[in-house]
Design a protein around this nucleic acid. Sequence first.
DNA 1: GAGTTTGAAACT
DNA 2: CAGTTTCAAACTC
Length: 774
Amino acid sequence: MDSPEDNRIPPSTTSSSSPTVQESPFFNYLRNLSPIRSGKTARYVQGFTQTNFTVPPPPVFTSPRVDLQRETSFREETDAAGPDIYGQGDTHLKPEPIHCFQKEDQPCSPSGCIDEYLADPVDMEDTTKSSDLCAQTRNDVPMIFENRLSTHGDTIDKDDDHVDSHMFQGSFAGAQDHEKFEPQATDGQDNKVGDSYQSIPQTLQSVKTHKDFGEDSRLALKQSAKDADQHQRGIRRHLQFGATMSCKDTGNETHDTANSTLAEGLTDFESLVSYQIEPSGISNSWQAGTHAQTVNFLLSSCPPQPVMSVESCGNHNVSACFPSDLELSASGIIRLTDSMGSDSTATQKFVGKVHAREEKQIAVRNHSSASVAGEIYAQVEDDQQETQAAKAIVPYDGRTLTPQNTNMVEELYQASPKRNRKRAKCINEGEGCKRCNCKRSKCLKLYCECFAAGVYCLDSCACTNCFNRPEYEDTVLDTRQQIETRNPLAFAPKVVKQDTDSPANIVEEGNWTTPSSARHKRGCNCKKSKCLKKYCECYQARVGCSSGCRCEGCNNSFGKKTESIFRRPEKWRNPSHEQPDNLQTQDDFVKAGRAHQISSTWEELVDMSHLTPISHSHSAAMATSASLSIRDSSKVSQPQPYQESTLQSSAVYLHSHHSPISPTPKLYGSKILSDISSDNHLYDILEDDTPELLKNTLTPTKAVKISSPNQKRVSPPQNRSQEVRSSTSQGLRSARKFVLPAVPSFPPLSPYSKSRDGTQKRNGDSKDDDNSCQ
DNA sequence: GAGTTTGAAACT
DNA sequence: CAGTTTCAAACTC
């Protein structure tokens, strides 16, 4: 095995040491402290020295929330300063991918890194330093450094100038110990990492690592294939450190104003989520910080998912969410690669996988790069840390998407022992996280949740012979149109919220302070489930059954059919009602509890959103939307699912419109926005639970335009419009959503390629086949 | 993980 | 429009 040291460290870096650093008192101090020999340290130090050490002002905030805010600020700065991150103009061809990356990047911004770690009350200085590192690290810093931080974090010198050196030294030392730089202590790198994760000091490490990650990757790229192993190893290490790293990494490089905005919004939203998750934690525990960070990252990566992940996945919040993010990222990568059209073998290879379904499927099976997202997903399922790492990887790749990077990503995933793991299944996944398992519908029927939700299938989907992919956009759109022709509201949200602002609603519903406005438009038709299972769409949407339902023996815990809507609020207020008997899993109860909190205190949430550090107008908008969403959800007062669907949906919408990806709203952007804005009333109409109204009022086309996006998405249209209005970045679209070109109800979806599981090619017999088969 | 149940979607 | 079939998710074991 080649020594990591050799491989990882470019000759230039290793050859000389920076006198400045070494001579500095700080350096000496470190030397003394560090168990590692100065000789080796010197190298790393030097490498680090070579990089620009721009020491940004130390972060001041310790609170996660504060961090968030700060993060936003930093992002802005970064954005201003940082140009093109993705900049390789070519890559911009497809905003979607960019979007994905941007999302991920946002959290990664230096500030973001800092923020995340600032959450750590324990060591402010460390955090500050870490922030510095973040700013600096872009340059070549071997990832190796990261490890050491945990160990030496407390010893970090306060001198900013030397901090970096110190950090690196420490890292280096750690690397030596763990990375086999020093054969002696190769063991347990992972373990340490994991441990470090838990400890505050480690936070710094994570940050550094994160930064390093990018650097590291680059270094690896520079090196020949021989280094591949080393590189992968390093990556894995990063993975272990967690999402934080990734975030930071990406953040520095990629910042668009749009991104910032989105990030802010996300941050805001995140705050809410975080709060829910760990109300107390916001303040300071490392865990709390972690959650926040995670959430942040997730949010930035994939708006809708964060919520879901947080609530649905518990410990795996991040992980759960992550999948989507990864997917997005992966897709983005693919797209970018494609758009790049580079002649590089790697690119072609990648593209080929993307477009060649067969190939892709094979690749997926083999855990090839094409299924990076899926692999990541898998990792998430089993190992959160790894998942996080994966996340980091994705952003990284996305950021510097190049053929080499692509390869690197592939290698990384391939190298991952867990890459083969089954994709994590997002329980209670919100719309943003939909994953279908279609076998015969080709994902071109409403049976397909993804399709029905107006989103492309993801790599994580287990569908077979899927045509609900960007590659088959035409087919998808055609099919969609056909369906809409039959039923203009086919893609309209099944559950709509009552317009709380509408006096009419108030009159109808009575007390609007409670979350009771959501209803299933069409109503359910349950016969056996008594509307107590998710078979029931009403129950699934966490809304009560209404007179429009034809269910039998309705016992919907969210509101029985016969039950007066007016009474729902009361019921909701009663926690007991929010925990339906049918909550079968502990998660359900937990979620329900959360939901309850949310619903009952939705106003508080709003306040919270305001309280969030985010100062941006965007964030404000986000908060507003989030609040709205929450409120809507709360109206229903549903247990956790509520969060998932509603909040998530909200998030989705928010992100969709704020998505940094497409600064210039691609096709639909402006138009959609204008439509939404101008046609906001349409939402009101749609929101009316009476299908008749919908049908009557809206022409099919119009209805489609407005609602076509996702019927399944619960988020209230109104919110969307508001969001759109509030956000300056219009035209931003969500990554997965697809919209009819003629009538874009939703932002175009991101270029997702569905690589998963096409192995069984069972051709459906549906009419759609014709379309699909082109 | 496989098989069953369920109800929406699709079809006749 | 009603009845039937198809489908995929939800659920159970």
